[in-house]
């Protein structure tokens, strides 16, 4: 009996040495976001993933003329993302991709009727854009085109 017991102890020890736990799920994932622009406390913010803009908002002190038009509260923040909070003046004349009409969207450079319609379709299909970059998931808008229009749009 003793021999058997020891045999199992040896087996257990060997298991313990050969195998190691996978921490994938419990691993703390923290993302770092840089916020600049019209806020009192610019800098790096460390948040636990997944973090939405709503979570970050508590830690930010906005200046009076800060505009939130480029942020969606539902937007999930990416690791090492840089958020630039624009001023209200900068936002004047920009077009909201979440509420603009077909004609308004067509005023953007490089956006014709077809693409504008696709943007509208995407909006109605997904319930609106949650971040500006999501515009690149609309067929026909690639990085180059997005770079051209990104200063003229808001959420």
């Amino acid at each position: 009996m003793g021999k058997l017991l020891i045999f199992f102890i040896v087996l257990l020890v060997s298991f313990w040495i050969q195998w190691h736990p996978w921490h994938g799920l419990d691993e703390p994932r923290t993302i770092t976001v840089e916020v600049r622009g019209e806020i009192e406390n610019p800098g790096l913010f460390v948040l636990e993933a997944p973090a939405t803009v709503a979570v970050l908002m508590d830690q930010l002190e906005f200046k009076e003329n800060a505009s939130l038009d480029r942020l969606s509260f539902q937007q999930v923040l990416m690791d090492q993302e840089i958020l630039i909070i624009p001023s209200k003046a900068e936002m004047e004349g920009t077009i909201s991709i979440n509420s603009a009409t077909l004609e308004e969207l067509m005023k953007l450079p490089g956006i014709g009727e077809v693409t504008a319609q696709r943007i509208l379709d995407y909006r109605s299909e997904h319930g609106g854009f949650k971040r500006l970059e999501e515009l690149m998931e609309v067929p026909g808008i690639k990085e180059a085109k997005y770079a051209k229009i990104k200063d003229q749009i808001r959420l």
């Binding site: 040896v10 087996l11 040495i17 050969q18």
Partner: peptide, 27 residues
């Protein structure tokens, strides 16, 4: 039941710490 040599057992367990050591240990 046969008596066991404790030294051997400890030695076996130590061998386990080597890669795939349990072969030798069991042996």
């Amino acid at each position: 039941m046969k008596q066991l040599n404790w030294f051997w057992i400890l030695f076996s367990i130590w061998l386990l710490s080597l890669d795939h050591g349990w072969w030798m240990a069991a042996f």
